[in-house]
Design a protein around this nucleic acid. Structure first.
Length: 282
DNA sequence: ACAATTACCTGTATGC
DNA sequence: TGCATACAGGTAATTG
């Protein structure tokens, strides 16, 4: 699923494709995922020039010439494509999973697809997530010690803490499992039971693993999974996530899968039972 | 302020 | 073959 490396891959590609382009026509069809509503989205994007392509955590956004921002969150199964197109959008011809489209002034179209509709697309002048979201692991002034201290203050399990976008931006199931595998920490270890040294190790793995994943254009877990703007799969292969039953690349023990939280809304985690032993009483 | 739980959604996989 | 059920999880909203 799209996390920081996948969002950054898409951002970089869209930066090349979109910046400087003028939006000629805009269309969306699903009120639930279009904000603030379909009419405003269409009105406030049309005839605007795209100034820049930015990202914060998993959120991608584009400042427009009228002071608005075009925002895209890929959610679970969201994808954006840039395709050669016509000057006029033909929504009747769109596949049912296409929920928004922008026609640009160079005869290309930006297409937003999302079968599971957990993604979002819309416009907003304000960007409140810039304030509420936790630090960016790839920022130059990223303070690893401060983050380690913040995480260590939490009573919840470390995997849950890493997924909390208010504590640190951009990690999802794949890369949270990944940094815990790299640091040899069991995902169910309570954050406040992790030593300062070990917590700094966890935090220290964030930047390198995210950069490696970006270099591979993200991770695609299965056929039909995450694809970039050109329809290409990501080539980063996680060590833990999705590897249930396969040998750990460090020690050979089979990777195990577990579930955090209650049944229906439980979140899976993946770990090596030999490298990532629990070091506390339940 | 924090932690835990639930709802949202549908293509794919699995079971009978 | 067909139908029913389970599963996937980022985020917002709700509850304690």
């Amino acid at each position: 699923m799209p996390e920081l490396p996948e969002a950054e891959t898409v951002r970089r590609q869209l930066e090349q494709q979109l910046v400087g382009r003028k939006i000629i026509q805009s269309w969306a069809r699903l009120p639930r995922i279009t904000f603030p509503n379909i009419e405003t989205f269409a009105r406030e994007t049309q005839n605007q020039t795209i100034i820049a392509a930015k990202r914060r955590g998993k959120q991608i956004y584009f400042p427009l010439s009228n002071g608005q921002n075009l925002l895209i969150h890929l959610g679970m199964t969201g994808q954006v494509r840039v395709i050669p197109g016509e000057a006029v959008l033909l929504p009747d011809s769109f596949h049912k999973h296409i929920h928004a489209a922008l026609a640009l002034d160079n005869s290309t179209q930006l297409i937003f697809t999302d079968p599971r509709t957990f993604g979002k697309i819309g416009v907003s002048v304000e960007l409140p997530f810039l304030q509420t979201m936790g630090p960016e692991p790839l920022d130059e002034d990223f303070d690893a010690h401060a983050l380690a201290q913040k995480l260590a203050g939490r009573a919840t399990k470390i995997k849950n803490a890493l997924l909390d976008q208010k504590l640190v931006a951009g990690l999802g199931n794949i890369y949270a499992d990944e940094v815990l595998w790299l640091a040899r920490v069991h995902p169910e270890t309570h954050a406040n039971n992790i030593s300062t040294r070990k917590m700094r190790e966890i935090v220290g793995h964030m930047k390198p693993v995210l950069e490696r994943a970006i270099a591979a254009r993200g991770a695609t877990l299965q056929d039909g999974g995450y694809q970039d703007v050109f329809g290409q799969y990501g080539e980063y292969h996680p060590h833990a996530y999705g590897n249930t039953g396969k040998p750990c690349e460090r020690c050979g023990a089979p990777i195990q899968r577990g579930v955090l939280g209650a049944g229906k809304s439980g979140r899976s985690f993946h770990f090596c039972p030999k490298c990532q032993k629990r070091k506390e009483a339940k």
